[in-house]
């Protein structure tokens, strides 16, 4: 079973995408930390989450003391990152990624970079929307160029040219 855990930045962006349910082609379950759920308020995002929870594609992730302790340590370690640190909700996702092997879904720069800069987090796999789209294309579910264009139009997200060049799209 392939499991992921999503933070706020990924959820509110991905929820605007008309083909958002493609996420279930990659992951059997996406966990939502309670601290992340508390940050969601818009009707559209909540409606998608409600559907996901009802269909058991999503699951509420209750932060236990050991996960929170690890997350707090990650927050502290992340102060050494060159650009920006990681806040507790993203750190909870990274801690769950380390502890349970969940893929971490985030658009938060600090969380995205953390496994490249902090040895302790190097086993954690982090994916952004662009990485998810790329994985869907590699699995043959979408055409990458068209879907990247659609995602940017529908969500207002902008992908950096460096990233698009890396994927042969620029």
């Amino acid at each position: 079973m392939t499991e992921a855990i999503a933070d706020t930045s990924f959820l509110i962006d991905w929820a605007r995408y008309s083909r958002r349910d493609l996420l279930w082609r990659l992951f059997d379950v996406v966990h939502l930390p309670e601290s992340v759920l508390a940050e969601i308020y818009s009707e559209g995002t909540l409606a998608w989450i409600v559907d996901g929870l009802a269909s058991r594609r999503m699951a509420l992730f209750t932060e236990t003391d050991d996960v929170v302790d690890l997350a707090r340590r990650i927050v502290s370690l992340s102060r050494a990152l060159p650009a920006r640190g990681v806040d507790l909700p993203e750190a909870v996702c990274l801690a769950a990624g380390l502890k349970f092997g969940y893929v971490v879904l985030t658009e938060n720069g600090g969380a995205v970079m953390a496994p490249s800069f902090l040895n302790e987090l190097s086993p954690v796999k982090v994916m952004r929307a662009l990485d998810v789209l790329h994985a869907l294309a590699q699995a043959g579910h979408i055409g990458l160029r068209d879907e990247v264009a659609r995602y940017q139009v529908e969500t207002g997200h902008r992908f950096a040219k460096r990233d698009l060049r890396r994927l042969g799209l620029e």
């Binding site: 509110i12 818009s42 658009e107 995205v112 969500t155 902008r158």
Partner: peptide
Amino acid sequence: LGVEEFLERAREAKIPLVL
């Protein structure tokens, strides 16, 4: 503001989420 509400205001200001 809350996180999602702030990001809504950022969209209104044409500031995209980038990464």
